[in-house]
Design a binder for these strands. Structure first.
Lengths: 334, 334
DNA sequence: GGCACAAAAGTAAACGTTTACACAGCATGT
DNA sequence: ACATGCTGTGTAAACGTTTACTTTTGTGCC
């Protein structure tokens, strides 16, 4: 692969001139531009981004850590981020953490070593302490989907508690009283908050939450199916189910269908996230909208501002979820 | 951000020694290791990947161009690639092309400039000529989802023709004769091949394909809905529909549902891709499986082998699609 | 023609690493 | 006492750019 020196030699000029032509410096003659352009073409010269980054001390790159690119939730997040980056002439280095502490740490370190000046981090595995340390180390780092008490101005998060409260309250307002909750078995903050939102909404409406109406599973379709089966086999009688996320809701619905229990006629189901699949399920899933796109956009902007040292415009850091009414919940009639 | 020199000074050794400790060279004393490790810790030193890449002439990075990260199809592709990369200690630089020639070219150039030694490219916008040129320029570049006549050994692709032939043949075998086709309006090879597969299957079964049973739309749900509406308004009587992809099939089903036409009782529908949503639709979508995961895995391996100059193991470059029977197709009875 | 000044081009240092080579210290064998 | 070999460390060049500074070239004016 040819270098700037090769181009300079072929064009009969110095490397400085080549550099100036490449970077469209105004101090260059037509003649030089022509000679250099032709030489670059002939050698198919590609300026080495690493060398450039080294000397100019900037990479124009945003690093992003996601859980798993194959999950459409992260796909939507990445797209929002990419849109603001492309608008600002930045590009993206992406790491997968697979929700596992060591992978996440390693991925973040790669992003830092690559000198991404801005970072958007979605971590479920690392501790608050670790994340806070990273925040303090790199100024352009923003955490999405987590709330760190020490550095709230670096976090973009969702009020999970409220979302779950909303979901449960909606079921209550539809007349339901026997409401089960399908929870993620992961020991992370958002799972806790969502469960607590469910409990508190119940309590606020005079229904005392009971432990045996809560079932656990891995936060995917299989996990939802398993949790629903658990619930059914415990013999708890239930007219509605709230789930940790849409996938678990889909699993629960599959399980109910297998057991010849009609949704929503016999049992109502409500999800969480409003992900891609919620629109394609039948009945279409009533759920809680997780506004990941505006959140990701905001996180990206914030990271960019922090990275360039400009004081970030004040804007919401905690987003509020909203109810999306579709067809999987029915009022309780009797 | 501190450099290797800072660490060397604090540890009271030379930069060479620091480098050797960082890279776990065997020629280092316990004493040096300890001093350097402590200094690194104290300064929270991060080796600059750009400087490293520059001198060592390798970045350990694979570049990937996808159409749009938010599409689960590309999510699945990226995940497969990431899995083989992480296994080989490489990481990923990702570009979005949004199916647009200029964006694709720009994204590929960024990947090359960043000195990714291996590349997996999914392009719909660029011409065969452009792609072939890129292939010749960088040895570790592999094109997925396209067939380039000049460099077939660099392409991993699917037999689209066969897939569509298979789909249509299945409908024919179920007794259908009036079969419409919903086609992508994009002027790209795979759309053509799929349409031709449909036509040829029809012809092979003595049904002469007619232009007015083919409708066009953007390859998403709205496009499918529009195409189906076109078909209906043309008054063509049809008992089955084959679609360019699952999203268009979903759109078609939505349109049929609105028109009180039962799927699959009155009209059968078959998709293409076997994407995430096909499993969640009701009736669950009969479709053609696009084995993107093994394809992406293979592409990544091939790119890695080509990049390191080892002769690539011979393995399939053209994958064959298969039929996935679910519930959206019914035999024609009468 | 000579001069001042502007424009264009060149020279070389710097960015943060790796690594070939050189060298010091030390144990070993004669 | 001295050559030998081994271990650990240091020195300095190299990677491919950008850019401050310097030098050359060109232009207009008296």
């Amino acid at each position: 692969m040819s270098t700037i020196k090769d181009v300079a030699k072929l064009a009969g000029v110095s490397v400085a001139t080549v550099s100036r032509v490449v970077n469209r410096s105004p101090r260059t003659s037509e003649k030089a531009i022509k000679a250099v352009t032709e030489a670059m073409e002939a050698l198919s010269y590609r300026p080495n981004a690493n060398a450039r980054a080294l000397v100019s001390q900037t990479t124009q790159t945003m690093g992003v850590l996601v859980g798993d690119v194959s999950n459409p939730f992260f796909g939507a997040m990445l797209k929002s981020i990419d849109l603001v980056c492309r608008d600002q002439g930045k590009h993206l280095l992406i790491g997968n953490g697979y929700h596992e502490a060591d992978s996440e740490r390693e991925a973040i370190e790669i992003l830092i070593n690559s000198r991404c000046e801005s970072l958007v981090i979605h971590s479920k595995g690392l501790s608050d302490e670790d994340l806070t340390k990273f925040c303090k180390e790199v100024p352009g780092l923003v955490v999405i989907n987590r709330q760190l008490d020490e550095v709230p101005e670096r976090c973009i998060s969702l009020d999970n508690y409220k979302g779950s409260y909303l979901a449960t309250e909606y079921l209550l307002n539809q007349g339901h009283r026997d409401i089960a909750y399908i929870c993620s078995e992961h020991d992370i903050e958002d799972a806790d908050s969502r469960k607590q939102g469910y409990r508190d909404a119940l309590a606020a409406h005079g229904v005392s939450p009971q432990e045996h109406t809560i079932a656990y599973g891995y936060p995917d379709e299989q996990g939802g199916e398993k949790a629903m089966r658990d619930l059914l086999s415990r013999g708890v009688s239930v007219t509605a189910v709230a789930a940790y996320n849409d996938y678990m809701a889909a699993g629960a619905m599959a399980c109910l269908e297998e057991s010849d229990i009609a949704v929503p006629e016999q049992v109502s189901v409500i999800g969480f996230d409003d992900g891609l699949i919620s629109r394609y399920m039948k009945p279409r899933l009533t759920t809680i909208r997780y506004p990941i796109q505006p959140m990701a956009e905001q996180a990206a902007r914030l990271a960019l501002q922090l990275a360039q040292g400009s004081s970030p415009e004040s804007s919401p850091h905690v987003f509020v979820p909203t109810l999306v009414k579709r067809n999987s919940v029915k009022p309780l009639t009797q």
